[in-house]
Design a protein around this nucleic acid. Structure first.
Lengths: 204, 204
DNA sequence: GCACTTATGGCAGATTCTGCCACATGGGCA
DNA sequence: TGCCCATGTGGCAGAATCTGCCATAAGTGC
């Protein structure tokens, strides 16, 4: 239960940080400001995040998390490429009326745009993508029946390629003005990318 | 000419930093220590690198640079997947007797192992890989005749997939004890990965 | 050799980050 | 319920990181 509390404050801090970054700019927002606005002590902030830029990680990771979990929960009879595509569609398509999901995607867009001229934020996004690749590799390994072999070259390659495909889709969407749903939305783009990459995804 | 000088000191600092990291550990090496050992002022160090971890970037990027340039210099008649494979083979195979290339690879191995238990170093590696993807996308766009469209979804996808393949190969090699040449070397692994991913590389 | 651009060094100071310890909070158990 | 303990939190001191500013030196072109 205490785990749940920690995750909640973690998300609280993340949302607070993102809001401050968007409102006042990344540069003129200090870690102390985020902490105060989030209602925690500076020392506590640094127990959750190593740097102020890292504070937005939970917001960037939520989509990836849903994707990976959807892959885990996909019927094991489904071929890997299909499981990846279906999971991406689920994770990146906000259900009509689900404002939380839509707003989550819009936050990602705002943050990615901000990251365009901030190496530190860009780095956070890179890390988030890499973490997603790593956990996806673990899920694919489990799916393949391998006990703990997320380190296998084939698994790593598949996870990396799938991750690159979804990443390209999300970044392309975020760079434009298309709505989160529809043919230019992240889900649709990811379908196309994963389809293009299908040949490289059969290896797992 | 001043450009060349700057690149030289940049590499100097990088080598100094890597040596200190390996010898005394990342934690107990301060930015000031690196600066002194490299013969520059701390203030100058921070003009080259934003953080002490970032100082190793040039060492991680040299291989990627060679790969991308080999792709650029490949005959334009060569299909993209073949160009990528051939370039990877050239960039990751140290010529017999070329101790510089071999040692460069060994440095990468040491640094990647150190990065295994240092989020900050891992982040630097992620950034290096992403930079490589981005420049590769530019080269592929030029190859395809597109004026400046490194931002096209297809190009980005291809570069991302190719980058993921080579990255998986290099990381797998670095995690093991295989020599830099031979069937378990990075070049050979990259060949296999790029071959597996070939289906996803025809899009450009 | 002379002007000029540009890199470097040094210093002050803001900010970031960490170690340490005391306190509070919340979950488990009698 | 009431106590106990594990654990999260706050506060403070201090180290390390990072930046702005200006003076100086180095090197670049005329």
């Amino acid at each position: 239960m205490t785990e749940r509390r920690k995750a909640a404050t973690r998300l609280d801090i993340a949302r607070t940080a993102a809001a401050l970054f968007v409102e006042h700019g990344l540069r003129s927002t200090r870690a102390e400001d985020i902490a105060r606005a989030a209602g925690v002590a500076p020392r506590t902030f640094y127990r959750y995040f190593a740097t102020k830029e890292e504070a937005i990680t939970p917001l960037l990771a939520v989509g990836a998390r849903q994707w990976v979990e959807a892959v885990r929960d996909a019927p094991s009879a489904l071929p890997v490429p299909d499981a990846l595509r279906h999971a991406a569609a689920c994770a990146l398509t906000p259900a009509p009326g689900d404002t939380a999901a839509s707003e989550s995607l819009e936050w990602v867009r705002s943050l990615l745009r901000m990251a365009a001229d901030s190496p530190a934020l860009q780095s956070v996004w890179n890390d988030a993508c890499h973490d997603a690749d790593a956990t996806l590799a673990g899920v694919l390994a489990a799916r393949a029946g391998l006990p703990d072999e997320a380190g296998s070259l084939e698994i790593r390659l598949t996870a990396g390629v799938a991750g690159a495909a979804v990443r390209a889709a999300v970044e392309t969407w975020a760079a434009g003005d298309a709505p989160a749903t529809g043919p230019q939305g992240p889900a649709a783009l990811a379908q196309r990318c994963l389809a293009s990459a299908e040949g490289a995804l059969r290896g797992a």
